[in-house]
Nucleic acid binder design. Sequence first.
DNA 1: CACAAAATTTAACCTAGGCTACATCTTTTA
DNA 2: TAAAAGATGTAGCCTAGGTTAAATTTTGTG
Lengths: 147, 147
Amino acid sequence: MDGRGKLLKSKQQADVFGRVRKAHQTEVAEDYVELIADLIAAQGEARAADLAARLGVSHATVTNTVQRLIGAGLVESRPYRSIFLTDAGKRLARVVRERHLIVRDFLVVIGVDAETAENDAEGIEHHVSKETLEAFVRMLRKSTSEG
Amino acid sequence: MDGRGKLLKSKQQADVFGRVRKAHQTEVAEDYVELIADLIAAQGEARAADLAARLGVSHATVTNTVQRLIGAGLVESRPYRSIFLTDAGKRLARVVRERHLIVRDFLVVIGVDAETAENDAEGIEHHVSKETLEAFVRMLRKSTSEG
DNA sequence: CACAAAATTTAACCTAGGCTACATCTTTTA
DNA sequence: TAAAAGATGTAGCCTAGGTTAAATTTTGTG
């Protein structure tokens, strides 16, 4: 417990915050794509109304965001029709889903209850680097081989 | 590895996303307050220019945000003078700093290198619930008593 | 002490991501 | 099949958090 030690250099610290800001910009895209994939898997299609209900936002907000995701090449949709993932969207969804499950299962393994793990994973997952995710996987494997 | 199982109920899932959105709104406040406290501790005062350099944003952005934090009762400042924390701001800074250190040290303990731990902690810390933080502390204690 | 440099404020603008209200299209059903 | 219900789109608005450029205040120095 040595505390934080000396301050980082300004530029270094600015890079850290910059990365976090950048992560924020991708979070919404990741959440939508993940949710669209889940809905398609569970119900055969993803409707804007379902997304709105599950995200807890208005359908107008969903329309806005879906337009941006179309622009980003992650999603396809024709007026008044349901929403599909492009190949890029499907790839992203797969990555996001795997990461989500790893974070959630990791939290459970260290003693967090299942519901809290699900909740916290939703916020944490977007900020977990490749290295940290690998550390999570190692812990998961260890717990499996032990228990 | 059972996957995610059935979909959550819409309302339940909306609550999860709602919590994450709410966390986002507090992140900037937490980052500023934490940084202001660090700067005061290290340099005796917190200037807008320092905040801007360390956050990697323009000084105009800092001015905007500081105005909002003043409105939120976390920060005090007179025109052209440096920035201080209110009592509420100091309390928040203490909580945020402790949580940050726990997350960072926890990541190190599970095998993440120090620099990545510092980077990821900055993003993760805002999304860690009390329960998960307690699980982190337990792991930290275990590693201390073991190693 | 005046003036240049540095810091801060202000103004005008942008995007993301929210909202409500209203218009329009689709689907269901009487 | 026509009207009601439900889903989607559109318009106009808001806040947070960014930007650059120009104005102002403070500070440091010749």
